[in-house]
């Protein structure tokens, strides 16, 4: 019974998705839409197969940057969220800066990064980190602030050190909110990396999209986007799997 329900849950959206692709395919053929405007699914699917090595190569580079950028944003996001939530002096010092940077359209910093750091990976990771940082930090502040203050009585009565309190009480207590920030950030990171690759790169999916655009190779653009979307789905699934493994209290 339960198995059947699970299978249905997985298959129904898949069938619906397949149906959409079929409609798309039919529409392109019936209305004879030119391939450089809207390629049929069968065309860009074939393109994915044909260009698999190339897509895999650039896809891996993009994935690597997404993960580095995500970590570069998430770790300071949690750390700063903790400091702001726990120490009013940090809140007073850091919050104005944070609010200012948050208001800034950060993607526009990309040319500046290019000027400062050139075409290496570092500016891409830095920019991705800067953007993924905010959702994580905001949710971490909320998470650390909402800890039942009586939990500190418990930790003090066991003689816990600062580090033990952080690792065994505070971090796991705030984890559900931290993960809601991480789930947002990982999706944002995919977009940011691809956009940054448009601006200054000779590798990665963003570069591939740009090159295909120059060559009016629309089916390759679609093929690249499908791969980018698969990477996004995979990485957010990974974050959710980590959450399920580490955060039991969200499950009830």
């Amino acid at each position: 019974m339960k198995l059947r329900a699970t299978v249905r849950k997985a298959w129904e959206p898949a069938l619906w998705f397949l149906g959409l692709l079929l409609i798309w395919e039919a529409a392109v053929r019936i209305f004879a839409i030119p391939g450089f405007i809207l390629p049929a699914p069968s065309v860009f699917m074939l393109r994915i197969v044909q260009s698999a090595p190339q897509l895999a190569y650039h896809g891996m580079i993009t994935t690597k940057l997404i993960i580095y950028g995500f970590v570069a944003g998430a770790v300071p996001g949690v750390a700063l969220g903790y400091l702001i939530a726990r120490y009013s002096i940090c809140k007073q010092l850091l919050y104005p800066i944070v609010v200012f940077i948050q208001g800034l359209p950060k993607i526009t910093l990309a040319p500046l990064m290019l000027v400062w750091f050139g075409f290496a990976d570092f500016p891409k990771i830095l920019l991705t980190g800067l953007i993924t940082f905010f959702p994580v930090m905001v949710d971490s502040v909320a998470g650390f602030q909402s800890i039942d203050p009586r939990k500190y009585y418990l930790s003090k009565s066991t003689g816990a050190s600062w580090l033990q309190t952080f690792l065994k009480i505070e971090l796991p207590s705030a984890a559900p909110q931290i993960f809601s920030g991480l789930r947002i950030s990982i999706v944002v990171a995919v977009t940011v990396v691809i956009v940054v690759e448009w601006l200054n790169s000779k590798t990665g999916l963003g570069y591939l999209v740009l090159r295909s655009m120059d060559g009016k190779d629309t089916s390759m653009i679609f093929a690249t986007l499908v791969v980018g979307s698969l990477i996004g789905v995979f990485l957010s699934g990974l974050v959710q799997a980590i959450e399920r493994a580490l955060v039991p209290q969200g499950r009830h």
Binding site: K151, S157, P172, Q249
Partner: peptide, 19 residues
């Protein structure tokens, strides 16, 4: 400072819901 050579049963149990 807080005594650690102690066992406390807090009101409303105060169990950690992630453990």
């Amino acid at each position: 400072k807080p005594i650690s050579e102690i066992g406390i049963v807090f009101q409303d149990h105060l169990l950690l819901d992630f453990r």
